[in-house]
């Protein structure tokens, strides 16, 4: 089985069938990570470059582990270790990497559309590991795998996504994926963190946290980027927490078996109370585990199966 596309750049480009294929494949890879010897020979002889121009720990580590568990050779390049610090352009760096004949390049970049630009330019498969505030497809896929595993389905579930929607690639990718799979998505946050015409993406919009999480099956809390405070997005962490922090009080409005998710890293006490982050309803670490399987699935579907 193989994906019929060269690249995975965003959830917006994936069909229902492709999402199911990826999730089913990921499902079968979950087990590999529980073995004593966590390695299968599937991608032996393949080379995967993790090209991370924007800082990342969990996503890069997850991709690296995914590649290694499939026996691929993985190479990591970060912004500071690349020639880009010497002023090389992204296209020149990408063409240089292309000339070394890797099989897949995984790219994370702070600029929107950078993976798309590289995908047009070079012949290898590109996986978008996050481009600016645009897309983070592997995060949405691992979120969907987590939801599917815990709830047995995605269609018909009530999902609340809470936080800085405007600047969140996690929110965008999840909105594309979840609405396509039939979930009812509500986005919530202060008005200045809500992008214009977001409702046209097929979601409900509310500024009220309690309304958003009422009867929710899933609550996805987004990381509040403290550095954005100087863009006048909100007065203070304290005020934000007062209205949008998930706590043991407001979570009562959600369904009793609600899943609490967060793409991490979390700001304890800002968007999520510590007891909720560590509580029984929290699947935050499960998301991380599932992330490895989802990335293994994508690497396999793009480079393997020949």
């Amino acid at each position: 089985m193989k994906l019929s596309k060269k690249d995975v750049l965003g959830m917006r480009d994936l069909s229902r069938e492709e999402i199911n294929l990826i999730l089913d494949t990921a499902e079968s890879f979950l087990e590999v990570s529980t073995r004593t010897i966590k390695k299968v020979p599937t991608l032996r002889g393949k080379t995967i470059i993790n090209f991370f121009i924007e800082a990342s720990t969990r996503t890069r580590t997850s991709f690296e582990i995914a590649g290694k568990r499939l026996s691929a050779d993985t190479v990591n390049i970060t912004a500071t270790s690349s020639s880009m610090v010497k002023g090389e352009t992204l296209t020149d760096t990408a063409k240089t990497l292309e000339a070394m004949n890797p099989d897949i390049i995984v790219i994370r970049h702070s600029a929107v559309g950078a993976p798309h630009m590289i995908a047009r330019l070079i012949k290898q498969s590109i996986i978008n590991a996050g481009d600016g505030a645009h897309e983070h497809p592997t995060q949405a896929l691992l979120d969907m795998l987590t939801i599917r595993n815990e709830k047995g389905k995605i269609a018909g579930l009530k999902v609340a996504i809470v936080g800085d929607i405007a600047h969140s690639r996690v929110a965008r990718s999840n909105i594309f994926g979840l609405t396509l799979m039939g979930a009812q998505v509500t986005v919530c946050g202060p008005a200045m963190m809500m992008p214009r015409y977001i409702e046209k993406m097929g979601v409900s919009v509310t500024y009220n946290m309690e309304e958003a999480i009422k009867d929710a099956d899933i609550i996805m809390m987004l990381r509040i980027q403290l550095e954005r405070q100087n863009e006048n997005l909100f007065p203070s962490d304290r005020e934000y927490a007062q209205y949008y922090c998930l706590t043991h009080r407001n979570i009562q409005r959600a369904k009793a078996d609600v899943l609490v998710m967060h793409p991490g890293p979390i700001n304890r006490g800002v968007e999520i109370a510590p007891d909720i982050a560590d509580g029984v309803q929290s699947f935050i670490l499960k998301q991380v585990t599932n992330g490895v399987a989802v990335r293994m699935a994508l690497l396999y579907l793009l480079a393997g199966g020949e």
């Binding site: 917006r12 505030a133 645009h134 214009r196 015409y197």
Partner: peptide, 13 residues
Amino acid sequence: NEGFVSTLLGLKG
């Protein structure tokens, strides 16, 4: 432009 397309793309409008 700030509008639906910038919202889709995550580009600052």
